[in-house]
């Protein structure tokens, strides 16, 4: 029966409805919530959503509630295995504690990318990269 379902957004996502899903956005944000609905553009309705940030082997999360995500911005959508999620060897810390560290990491990464792009452009004859979102 499964093989009869064509590989379309609707065909792939029916089984994910009412499951806890991980959504990664193009800006790098990671959201976890229950997928309640979607459409042909992969616009998503995510209920009881939390945003998670990671750094090394710690993570932090904060409550965000009900989301309507425009499909274009989704990089990845994956089901969270409820049996295994508690076994993940990551330690949870307070959100406020991790946010500044996380922000620093993003800034550092951005700087690294800029330096790399500069070298590639000025010394290696590459063209300039576009703006945001090229990372994916």
């Amino acid at each position: 029966m499964d093989s009869l379902i064509p590989f379309t957004t609707s065909g792939s996502l029916v089984d994910c409805v009412d499951r806890k899903m991980l959504v990664v956005l193009r800006d790098g944000r990671k959201l976890q919530g229950v997928l309640r609905s979607y459409d042909q553009f992969a616009n998503l309705v995510l209920e009881d959503t939390v945003e998670r940030i990671y750094y090394g082997d710690v993570f932090a999360e904060t409550w965000k509630g009900l989301f309507l995500i425009r499909g274009e911005n989704v990089v990845l959508l994956g089901e969270v295995d409820l049996d295994k999620e508690d076994d993940v060897p990551l330690q949870q810390v307070a959100w406020e504690e991790l946010v500044p560290i996380h922000r620093e990491e993003i800034a550092a990464k951005k700087k690294r990318e800029e330096t790399k792009a500069k070298v590639l452009f000025e010394q290696k004859g590459f063209c300039k990269e576009g703006g945001e979102g090229d990372g994916y």
Binding site: I5, G11, V17, D18, R36, S37, D39, Q40, V45
Partner: peptide, 22 residues
């Protein structure tokens, strides 16, 4: 919503509220 979505066959949206209806 869940039950209906799973029962339904090819290419139909879930019964629950579509994103744009929401």
């Amino acid at each position: 919503g869940h039950g209906a979505a799973r029962e339904s066959s090819l290419g139909e949206w879930p019964r629950s509220t579509l994103p744009l209806s929401l």
